[in-house]
């Protein structure tokens, strides 16, 4: 690391010492008292996030199950179809009934 880089990092870190105390707005106390008196409830922040999490979990769960079911049900059918096609080609090629013995 170069000296100029070290200097700029030091300057940046030391800039923390120049931070002054800030004053809050003079109207803040009245706002607080007003909120206490009117009993303004604190907003419920997490409802949306929880709902979203549950929804996303549900969608992922259903999708994974659908993919699994599709894989289980469709794949053997595809395999059977392929075997049948192969069998058909073999039958055409050899022209006899004993084709299965070559393959199975």
């Amino acid at each position: 690391m170069t000296n100029s880089n070290n200097k700029i990092i030091d300057d940046t870190v030391n800039s923390i010492h120049s931070i002054q105390r800030a004053e809050a707005s003079p109207f803040l106390f009245n706002k607080i008292i007003n909120r206490i008196k009117t009993g303004t409830p604190e907003p419920i922040y997490y409802t949306g996030a929880w709902f979203l999490r549950i929804a996303v979990t549900g969608v992922v769960f259903i999708s994974l199950n659908a993919i699994t079911i599709w894989t289980v049900t469709k794949q053997p059918q595809k395999q059977i179809n392929e075997q049948m096609e192969l069998h058909k080609i073999a039958q055409e090629y050899f022209g006899n009934e004993h084709v299965s013995s070559y393959f199975y």
Partner: peptide, 19 residues
């Protein structure tokens, strides 16, 4: 946005606060 930061230090302070 920090009212306690002087203008000449604003650039350094904003980088520091980001870090």
């Amino acid at each position: 946005e920090h009212p306690g930061v002087a203008l000449e230090n604003k650039e350094h302070a904003s980088v520091l606060f980001l870090a």
